[in-house]
Amino acid sequence: MKTIINTYYWNNYRCSYTYNTNEILTDERVALVLLHPIGVGLSGVFWHRFIHAWFNRGLPYPIYNPDLLGCGLSDMPPLAYYPEDWAAQLKDFIENNVKKPVVLVVQGALFPVAIKLLQNSPNWIKGVVLSGPPAWRTMTEASNPLQQKLVWNLFFNSLAGKAFYQYARRREFLKSFSTRQLFAKAEDVDNEWLDFLEKGAMNINSRYAVFSFLAGFWRENYGEAITSISQPTLVVFGEQASSIGREGKIESPDERLENYLQHLSNGQGVKISGRNVLPYESTEEFVTVVENFVKSLS
């Protein structure tokens, strides 16, 4: 596997990505663009197991793995980030760096970013893979914009918010949260996972992306937008999938999958072992279903 770390500029911000390939000549192959989750210490590093497993199989499809603004090696301006912002970054990235239609592979609650990208650049997206998207009820219930801004201004964008982030990036908290909310098996919350979260959260400015997510700036009613997606879409849920919040007590994994398939005009779905971070905890199974999907688009 060949990995190249590159940078580009968007809106005068320095952004980072890796280009990964098994071959020198891959112009004729559809490329994957990975959308990492937002959370304490998270960035494109989240996908490293998936990328290695993908190329260990000798697959010829190249992978672009960008760090979203506010994460990883990209700049971290002290801003409130909205899905529209990250979608605009990705639109620019695909048009000027990838330069051909791609398959989006989207982790968790980054689905709203993919939706905004699909709305603005449908011709650049050949297919979509959704790994553990939020419960349908979460995706179709808008939150109050005024309440979002109040929470942001009074807590997250304050000294109290900074102190909370310093607490949340402690290894003990990261391990507890990952065990309770993300992984199916506690033993899978390993040192590798915790090490890269700790490293990713070292820059205190990484809190702005995380707090933008926690403030709910991504929450709106996406029901109509999801129904309008025409691209082939694969929805993958873990057999022990759960939600971070009360919605998880309402929908079983089967119900969550069925809700999506009822509203996606060109959707298909599958369950694999694992819970909420399938590319990391159930890597080989996840690679298999993505491989089959990508091959079906060729």
Rank of each mutant, 00 (worst) to 15 (best):
F183G: 02
Q240L: 12
G132C: 13
A160C: 10
D190V: 11
Q181K: 14
N157H: 06
S158Q: 08
F156I: 05
G238R: 02
G200P: 04
E187C: 10
E239A: 15
Y165I: 04
F237K: 00
F177C: 06
S212T: 04
I229N: 06
S178R: 03
A163T: 13
L154I: 11
I226L: 15
E141T: 14
D195V: 00
N203P: 02
A160E: 07
T227G: 13
S243H: 12
T227K: 15
Q181Y: 15
V129D: 00
S206K: 01
D190Y: 08
F155G: 01
R170M: 07
A184P: 01
A168Y: 07
D190W: 10
N205F: 09
S230H: 13
L154W: 10
F183C: 04
M139P: 05
F211Y: 15
T179G: 07
W218A: 11
L194C: 10
Q181N: 14
K149M: 14
S212K: 03
R171I: 08
E198F: 04
L182F: 12
F237A: 02
D195H: 11
K149H: 07
V189T: 04
T233P: 08
N191W: 04
M139C: 09
T233E: 10
A163E: 05
E187A: 08
A135D: 09
L154G: 06
L214V: 06
P133R: 06
D190S: 14
S242H: 05
Q231E: 12
P134E: 03
G132H: 11
F196M: 13
F183V: 03
